[in-house]
Computed example of a mutant assay.
Amino acid sequence: MTTHHPTTRRLVYGHATHHDCLAFADADTATEEGAEIRALAAARTWGEARQVQMTHLDNPAGPECYEPEDYADDEPFDITEVGAVVEGYWPPMVTTRAFDVLPEDLQDQYGKVVSTVHNGEYLEIPLDREGELVVELRESGYEVTRDDDLINLLDGSNLGSLAE
């Protein structure tokens, strides 16, 4: 059993619709990560997609995933057709982040570890525990903000509609 130690004191959380539970992320990087996802979703061609700068996430359209000769720079790009997105590996499940950002005692108290077939484990925190958990986090010195849109963006929800 690995011990996870929280890396941040500022958290953003919300209702992750894909798993219908609460998800938590590092508020210091979440907005930038969301912008990276949006930028890639907005790319119109493979050339544009390859140029998207990623600081926090891997670019699933980048050279480590596709050879430039697979898709010419001027070929139309659709994020929903990228292999890692289709297979559900990108962006990584937002519900796994609780392992890194929540104190372990609160993970144990409020969450349940759930295994998925392809993407490993995530922490399922029931929506009805939100009030208690947020109070405990704040009492422990965490700054906690709710942003459902950001959490679902980080989870890759509605990537296709971002490209519209």
Rank of each mutant, 00 (worst) to 15 (best):
residue 53 Q to H: 12
residue 53 Q to D: 12
residue 53 Q to V: 06
residue 53 Q to K: 11
residue 53 Q to W: 04
residue 55 T to H: 03
residue 55 T to C: 00
residue 56 H to P: 02
residue 56 H to M: 01
residue 56 H to G: 06
residue 57 L to P: 00
residue 57 L to K: 03
residue 57 L to T: 02
residue 60 P to R: 05
residue 60 P to F: 09
residue 60 P to M: 07
residue 60 P to D: 04
residue 60 P to G: 03
residue 61 A to R: 00
residue 61 A to G: 06
residue 61 A to Q: 06
residue 61 A to S: 05
residue 63 P to M: 10
residue 63 P to C: 09
residue 64 E to I: 15
residue 66 Y to W: 12
residue 68 P to Y: 04
residue 68 P to D: 02
residue 68 P to H: 01
residue 68 P to R: 06
residue 69 E to C: 08
residue 69 E to Y: 11
residue 69 E to H: 12
residue 69 E to T: 10
residue 70 D to L: 10
residue 70 D to Y: 14
residue 70 D to T: 12
residue 70 D to E: 13
residue 70 D to Q: 12
residue 71 Y to E: 10
residue 72 A to Q: 02
residue 72 A to F: 04
residue 73 D to S: 02
residue 73 D to C: 03
residue 73 D to K: 03
residue 74 D to G: 04
residue 75 E to I: 07
residue 75 E to A: 13
residue 76 P to H: 09
residue 77 F to N: 01
residue 77 F to P: 00
residue 79 I to R: 07
residue 79 I to Y: 04
residue 80 T to Y: 05
residue 80 T to L: 05
residue 80 T to E: 11
residue 80 T to G: 04
residue 81 E to Q: 15
residue 81 E to W: 10
residue 82 V to K: 14
residue 82 V to E: 13
residue 83 G to T: 15
residue 83 G to M: 15
residue 84 A to I: 02
residue 84 A to R: 14
residue 84 A to M: 14
residue 85 V to Y: 08
residue 85 V to S: 06
residue 85 V to K: 12
residue 86 V to E: 09
residue 86 V to F: 13
residue 86 V to S: 06
residue 86 V to H: 11
residue 86 V to R: 14
residue 87 E to S: 14
residue 87 E to F: 09
residue 88 G to K: 03
residue 88 G to C: 08
residue 89 Y to N: 07
residue 90 W to V: 01
residue 90 W to C: 04
residue 91 P to Q: 02
residue 91 P to S: 01
residue 93 M to R: 14
residue 94 V to L: 06
residue 94 V to Y: 05
residue 95 T to A: 12
residue 96 T to N: 02
residue 96 T to K: 07
residue 97 R to D: 08
residue 98 A to L: 07
residue 100 D to L: 13
residue 102 L to Q: 06
residue 102 L to H: 06
residue 102 L to V: 04
residue 102 L to A: 08
residue 104 E to D: 05
residue 105 D to R: 13
